[in-house]
């Protein structure tokens, strides 16, 4: 039992410690005073971390899809699908939190019209990326043959991962975006235009990314183990 704790659970405890630190430090530590953003800059530890966690989980899913295609081991297919599922959950949470944040900074304080916010390339790109991943699960569900499902969805997962980069990272940086990091944002948002993250933010931000990602990995492993159990019962019957 104790070896279980030492060998397998240390990163689960680490996840809890880091997230507790994220909440305590994230609310209580000093942050840069920026107009429009005000205290909402603390959303960096929650909203932005969702997207970072999503990216890491999708990368893991992508690796397992390649592994499936190389080995045809059914385990890898389960790993790929469950990591993609938790990644999508993080993406949806990132989107949901983003709508709240945008409502109180872009629309209320910055007087952006709703049309301007809806034109936000990163919102559209993220929506496209999430819908592509949504189609991945529809595709999986539409096969009855296990091997065919695993093979086709592995190929599709690689395509979905390849589409993630232009839609989330490249296109929003080419055209003007309200998000930070966009060149010459003519929409005018000096507050969001900090080129580098303040070091006061960084000491919470990086641990927060690791903590949220580990939580995502934990949930994914639970889903994977459940699926493996289900498959075992199916074969035994």
């Amino acid at each position: 039992m104790s070896s279980f704790f030492v060998r397998k659970s240390w990163w689960k405890i680490l996840s809890f410690v880091l997230l507790a630190y994220t909440i305590i430090g994230g609310f209580l530590l000093d942050v840069p005073r920026l107009p429009i953003l005000n205290e909402s800059i603390r959303n960096l530890y929650f909203h932005v971390c969702m997207w970072f966690g999503m990216m890491i989980l999708f990368i893991v899913s992508f690796i397992y899809s390649i592994k499936y295609l190389r080995t045809s081991n059914h385990r890898n297919d389960i790993f790929a699908s469950k990591f993609a599922a938790v990644g999508s959950l993080f993406g949806i949470l990132g989107y949901a939190t983003g709508t709240i944040w945008a409502n109180y900074t872009w629309i209320t304080d910055q007087n952006q019209s709703l049309a301007n916010v809806l034109k936000e390339p990163k919102l559209i790109g993220a929506a496209i990326a999430l819908l592509i991943y949504g189609a991945y699960f529809v595709l999986r569900g539409s096969f009855t043959d296990i091997d065919k499902r695993a093979r086709v969805s592995a190929v599709y997962n690689i395509f979905a991962f390849a589409m993630l980069f232009p839609s989330i990272w490249i296109i929003p940086r080419l055209v003007g975006s309200l998000h930070p990091g966009a060149p010459g944002s003519e929409s005018g948002n000096p507050a969001l235009n900090f080129n580098d993250i303040d070091s006061r933010l960084r000491i919470v931000f990086y641990p927060a990314i690791i903590g949220w990602t580990l939580l995502g990995v934990w949930i994914a492993t639970i889903k994977i183990r459940l699926q493996l159990l289900k498959d075992k019962t199916l074969i035994n019957v």
Binding site: L19, A20, I23, I24, F27, L28
Partner: peptide, 8 residues
């Protein structure tokens, strides 16, 4: 902070 920690 207390509320968020409780939820966590």
């Amino acid at each position: 902070v207390a509320v968020c920690l409780t939820i966590l």
